[in-house]
Design a protein around this nucleic acid. Structure first.
Lengths: 339, 339
DNA sequence: CTGAAAGCGCTTACAG
DNA sequence: CTGAAAGCGCTTACAG
């Protein structure tokens, strides 16, 4: 049996209430008593029971982290550990623990979130993705638990605390960079279209083309749904067009690596024959051959702010929702060339 | 205020005890009562409070995950998300939640682990690394909380439940593979020497050399301490030796990428001029140019078994410690050539 | 088959 | 400055 507050009280010759106050460092307890009690706590190896403490305090000192768990998606990508590192740092600074969702399907995740919230397992939730028509986001909006989102919510973003990059502008600048290198035939390989970030980057791609009078070519805009898992074939088709692109923007470095591999197999060289640019600046990208040009989106900062936002809400329910935009920057390396 | 068991009891015209029994699906409650109570629970939107339930049950249905948090190390590496995916899957299957350590230093982590354990925040702990002289491992050994380790413990491994690859043999086979390709001058770039996995792989390297009558060359064996963060310089020196190696085994694919980059800068080509082989088979390795030969260590399985092992201990304290060896296999790709 | 009571380990008004 | 008491939301022998 673990030692409880009662054991300490008895041993120190005080009441349990007093021990509790010593733990809380209540100023109304004499320093003499405090010292005595602390000695006994040390002696007996006392540690407060979180379950009990949290039950009466009606809080858990824990943040729930909810991620898309479709295995490949969330876990293969270095985004997850890096954003977690940011969250972890901020949470740890405020003595908050981290509780992870483990569900594999949307239904499971949804149920877990409801349990976390209703079961008072967590004081707030960080949603690590933003997709269209997401029941989890829907639920969070209603249930009243503090939460924040990494990524702009599709619905009513102004009512929600979230952190994001300016994805539209990022994509736009990326395309403009390629245009400035003399490219006119620029393809875009995007992600799943129910993710807001995918929409935004596609939007930026179109805006850049528009503003530079370059016609939008349907066949140049590829996304995950269109590829249906046949990425290799998609790239082959793209390059077999009458006017194949001279540059490709991909929505993630991982995808860029893949695409480069497929191009290689087609005897198309990067950057000699085609320019490639990625997103997210993974740790390995600079070591690639050629080093991959990419957009650094400050993933760590995204995590930091996401945690900051929930924590703010937890501390004061009444603070208005806040939106944080984290800066990004284009990193020129060796995968793009001037035409 | 959230709805409690009392609200349900009142509304259903039964006692709180009965409601509790309905939640537990106690067979001694009539199905009529059960149905009535369940209807009311539904109607009022009742959810059990975990804090309360766990307080009396003296369990938390939660597994603590402890990782090295030295930022770069744990988080940059795809190992972490993948092992977490394995753990997550198994834990979720048994309705266990995951609680993450967030400490940045060894002291912080140690304190967190003590709090998790003593504060009854978790029912068991999974230690994601094994290093020499680790106070965390020391503590876990004493405190009596069920735990498992990913990686062979340095001290008293037979008394501890852990999962690991046969790292000695893996490294040995890797070197033998290179020998079979005609290499005699084989270097080894290892990790931090306080990690058991590093020791094991180095040991396997030496064994292979020994058994094939190849002398061990001090300068060929590089590790993280020797490099002191000057990886580039270390590689330069390695290749500037009177007899430079014709092949390098690196202890991780990430390191392999880096090394390849440095070699590239020295105008040394892979695999034409030198063969490289990695460890851990990251998702990107197959897309590299050249595709990286590596050892797949089944990271997901490591996670799965680690979770299985703690869960077993939690269910039955008396089961003897168990050791699981997860298989690995050498994946030949394009980064090694026959001499 | 169901309820009253005690208790899990803590906190916090309320008194003094 | 400190204690007795009530209570957080649940579970579980003990009765009946």
């Amino acid at each position: 049996m673990a030692v409880t507050i009662k054991d300490v009280a008895k041993q120190a010759g005080v009441s349990p209430a007093t021990v509790s106050r010593v733990i809380a460092d209540n100023p109304r307890i004499s320093s003499k008593t405090k010292q005595k009690v602390r000695e006994v706590m040390e002696e007996l190896g006392y540690f407060p029971n979180f379950q009990a403490r949290n039950l009466v305090a009606k809080k858990s000192q824990t943040l729930g982290i909810v991620m898309e768990n479709s295995a490949t998606l969330a876990f293969q990508n270095p985004f997850f550990p890096e954003v977690l590192r940011g969250i972890s740092t901020r949470a740890h600074g405020s003595q908050y623990g981290l509780y992870l969702s483990t569900g594999a399907t949307q239904e499971e995740i949804h149920r877990e979130v409801v349990e976390m919230a209703q079961g008072k397992r967590v004081d707030g939730i960080i949603l690590l993705y933003s997709k269209i028509g997401d029941p989890v986001m829907e639920y969070l909006g209603q249930c009243g638990l503090p939460y924040s989102v990494v990524g702009r919510p599709y619905k009513d973003p102004e009512t929600i605390s979230y952190v994001d990059n300016d994805n539209i502008n990022n994509a736009k600048e990326t395309v403009e960079y390629l245009i400035s290198l003399g490219h006119q035939h620029i393809a875009f390989v995007g992600g799943a279209t129910d993710f807001v970030v995918s929409l935004d980057r596609m939007e930026g791609y179109r805006q850049a083309l528009d503003q530079h009078g370059i016609p939008f070519v349907e066949a140049y805009a590829v996304n995950q749904e269109l590829m249906q898992g046949k990425e290799r074939e998609a790239i082959r088709q793209l390059m077999a067009l009458d006017v194949p692109p001279t540059a490709i923007v991909t929505h993630d470095d991982m995808v860029a690596y893949e695409v480069i591999g497929y191009l290689e197999d087609l005897q198309i060289r990067v950057p000699e024959d085609i320019s490639i640019i990625g997103f997210n600046n993974h740790a390995i990208s600079k070591h690639l051959k050629p080093p991959l040009s990419t957009v650094d989106i400050s993933i760590y900062e995204l995590g930091l702010h996401a945690a900051e936002l929930v924590l703010e809400k937890i501390t004061d329910e009444s603070v208005p929702p806040k939106q944080v935009v984290v800066s990004s920057r284009l990193i020129e390396r060796g995968s793009c060339r001037r035409l």
